[in-house]
């Protein structure tokens, strides 16, 4: 174990820990934009800088390993000045349309500006002026709001593996974009939406939730995605009795916050008037709502009428492997091998 001092408090951590992790252990909060423990550490946003005694410049706490006897200050005058200047620079190049921005209330840029008392920038010069990319059905990309932390890029490369977005140009003209600066649908993007969840600001906005509720108004309900047998954990955002958003549940052991396009964006069926909520039985050529008892009785009756191979069953990709297993077992016990699955179609 390595022991160090942060803001006058001693702490012992594993030798491979970072200053940020040591501070977390002490309950000391350090603001970050580009940090995600699941991704490569890049030390790019410089928001987490801290003062390490004897070091020449400020150090990024997210990626600086601890050293025995290290003395760290996370809120010194020098550190606060650097963080304030960092925010000052970011909002000089960021549309301050927080009144209508979907991210308001969950935006880290907004939170830190609040924390450090930055209401407007000292700098009035060039600003990014990119066209909105809203041609895909799932989310809007507003690169004018992007603070270039690179979380989306690393998520796309390291977690999804699609590698659909990267940085282009350099310096002030840096921009996150798909190959040839094309809209995302022309790229290798699979619209898993994990970049949207990674974005600390309002650069990536899911279309379905626009105008439907502020983060603090929404109840978060944990559930399991119904689309396939993987069983990914989802958190649904609910306002009143309406689901207005979804994102991966990082506490789910099956998926650790990862999603695919269906789970992340495909929940509109929940409120669809055409959604089946009870069994339908065809009576006199018309489908009529019925009770489960009535429907199951009917099925049992039909099972008895047909013999062996006259019976066929079609299972669903939406249920689990175990349920599919039981289904084919059932069919075989009734004497039929005619069992299939919609994923084969």
């Amino acid at each position: 174990m390595v022991s160090l001092t942060i803001n006058g408090q001693s702490v012992e951590v594993e030798p491979e820990a970072t200053i940020l992790q040591a501070a977390e252990k002490l309950g000391i909060f350090i603001p970050t934009f580009c940090y995600d423990p699941e991704l490569t550490l890049v030390g790019a946003c410089r928001m987490c800088v801290v003062e390490v005694e004897k070091a020449r410049a400020l150090m990024a706490s997210c990626c600086t390993p601890v050293m025995d006897g290290m003395v760290v200050h996370t809120e010194s005058e020098r550190v606060i000045a650097a963080r304030k200047e960092n925010l000052n620079l970011l909002i000089a190049n960021h549309p301050l349309d927080c009144l209508t921005c979907e991210k308001t209330g969950a935006c880290r840029l907004q939170d830190y500006c609040y924390q450090y008392g930055i209401s407007e920038s000292d700098y009035h010069g060039d600003k990014k002026d990119y066209e909105l990319d809203d041609t895909n059905p799932f989310f809007i990309r507003n690169m004018n709001k992007c603070i270039l932390c690179g979380l989306c890029v690393r998520t796309c490369h390291e977690i999804n593996g699609a590698g659909a977005v990267e940085f282009m140009n350099r310096g002030f003209d840096s921009k996150v974009t798909a190959a040839f600066d094309d809209p995302l649908e022309n790229s290798s993007c699979v619209f898993c939406g994990m970049c949207v969840d990674a974005c600390p600001v309002g650069a990536l906005t899911p279309k379905h939730g626009i105008g439907k509720g502020r983060p603090w108004e929404l109840k978060r309900v944990k559930t399991v995605c119904p689309y396939c047998g993987t069983g990914c954990g989802l958190e649904l955002y609910v306002k009143g009795n309406t689901v207005v958003g979804a994102k991966g549940d990082v506490t789910s052991p099956a998926s650790r916050g990862q999603t695919c396009v269906k789970g992340r964006f495909g929940f509109d069926f929940l409120q669809s008037p055409e959604r089946l909520k009870s069994p339908l039985i065809r009576k006199n050529g018309e489908l009529v709502e019925s009770s489960w008892d009535e429907a199951l009785d009917l099925i049992a009756k039909k099972f008895k009428e047909v013999k062996g191979t006259e019976l066929a069953g079609l299972a669903s990709a939406r249920v689990t492997n175990e349920e599919n297993y039981l289904f084919q077992k059932l069919l075989r016990s009734l004497g039929s091998n005619n069992v299939d699955h919609c994923a084969r179609l």
């Binding site: 890049v42 010069g125 310096g171 003209d173 840096s174």
Partner: peptide, 22 residues
Amino acid sequence: TQNESCGKCTPCREGTKRMLEI
């Protein structure tokens, strides 16, 4: 330097630009 800034970190990317503008 502003022209050669790689753009990875905020202070250099945004700061050199603002210094140059001033």
